[in-house]
Simulated scan of single mutants.
Amino acid sequence: MSDSSTLVVNSITQMQLTADGQYLLIHGHQPTAALHRSVLNELLVALPNAIEHADRVLHDNQEMGFALHCQGWEVGRLNGTEMVVIRFRLSGSAGLSFSLPAAQIPFLLQALDGAVGSMSASGAEAVAGRTGDVTLQ
C-alpha cells in the first residue's frame, strides 16, 4: 500500500476500519486513502495544530485559537496507577482521552477555578457563546 505520489483528500463521504483493524479507509471524491493504525496517534496530534494554523493563515490572525466542542466528560484512574484519565465526549459520540499524573490534578483544579472565576455574573453560557475570550494555561 505504499506509493510516493501525493493523494489529495478534498472530501470525506465515509470512513471505516478494515476488518483486521489495521487501516482506516477514507472514502470520498478521490481515490480511497488508507491510513495504517500506527500513524493515527500522530494524525490526532497533527490535525488540531493544522486546523489552528490554517485558520490563522486564512484569517490573517496569529492569535486565533482552536478548541474541539465537548458534550460531556469522565474522570477515572488508569488501571490502579497514579495516572488519572480524563475522557471527553465529542460530537458524534467520539471520545478523546488524556492521561496525566495524579500529582498534577491540584494544578488542573486551580486552572479550572481561575477560568470559572473569570466568568461574568451572567454565567457560563454567555462566556461560552463568545469567541476570542478563551485563556489557556
Rank of each mutant, 00 (worst) to 15 (best):
A111K: 10
F66M: 07
L17Y: 12
H29N: 13
N10S: 12
C70S: 10
T81M: 04
A126Y: 04
L43F: 05
R130H: 10
V116K: 12
H36N: 00
G95K: 14
Q104R: 10
E125G: 02
H27C: 01
N10K: 09
A102P: 01
L108A: 04
G92L: 11
T131W: 12
A126E: 11
M64R: 15
L68A: 15
I12P: 00
Q104C: 08
V39S: 00
Q62S: 13
G123F: 04
T6G: 06
G92E: 05
L58T: 10
E74Y: 09
G117A: 09
V39G: 02
S97W: 03
F88H: 06
L58D: 11
G65Y: 04
N10H: 14
I12C: 06
N41Y: 11
V84M: 09
G114Y: 08
L68H: 05
S93N: 15
S5R: 12
M15W: 11
V8E: 10
A50N: 03
M64G: 06
H27K: 11
L24S: 03
F98K: 02
L90M: 05
D55P: 00
Q14A: 06
W73Y: 14
G28E: 09
L112W: 06
A67K: 14
D3L: 14
E74P: 01
E52V: 03
N10M: 13
M119H: 07
L58K: 14
P101W: 02
Q110K: 15
Q110D: 14
F66L: 01
S99Y: 03
Q110E: 15
F107L: 15
L24W: 09
A33V: 02
S122G: 08
Y23H: 15
L43C: 02
T32P: 00
D55K: 15
L7P: 01
S2Y: 14
A102I: 05
A121R: 12
A19E: 15
A33D: 00
S91R: 13
L24G: 05
G92F: 09
T81K: 05
E52F: 01
L47I: 15
A33T: 01
A121W: 10
G95M: 15
S118Q: 06
V134F: 08
H29I: 03
V84C: 01
P48H: 11
L78N: 10
L68D: 05
S93H: 13
V116C: 05
L78F: 11
L47Q: 04
S97R: 06
S11A: 07
V134R: 10
I105A: 07
D3F: 12
L90V: 05
E63V: 12
W73T: 10
A111V: 13
T131A: 15
S99W: 08
H36M: 00
A128Q: 12
P31S: 11
I12G: 00
A111P: 02
L47T: 09
N41P: 02
N10L: 08
L58S: 08
Q104D: 13
S99A: 07
V134G: 02
Q110Y: 07
M119V: 07
E63H: 13
M15Y: 06
S97A: 14
E125C: 04
L78D: 14
Q14N: 12
L35G: 00
I12T: 08
E63W: 04
G132M: 08
S120I: 15
D113G: 13
Y23C: 03
D133M: 11
H53V: 09
S97D: 05
S38Q: 08
L108D: 01
G114W: 12
A50G: 09
Q71I: 10
L35H: 00
T13E: 13
S122R: 14
V9P: 01
N61V: 10
S5N: 11
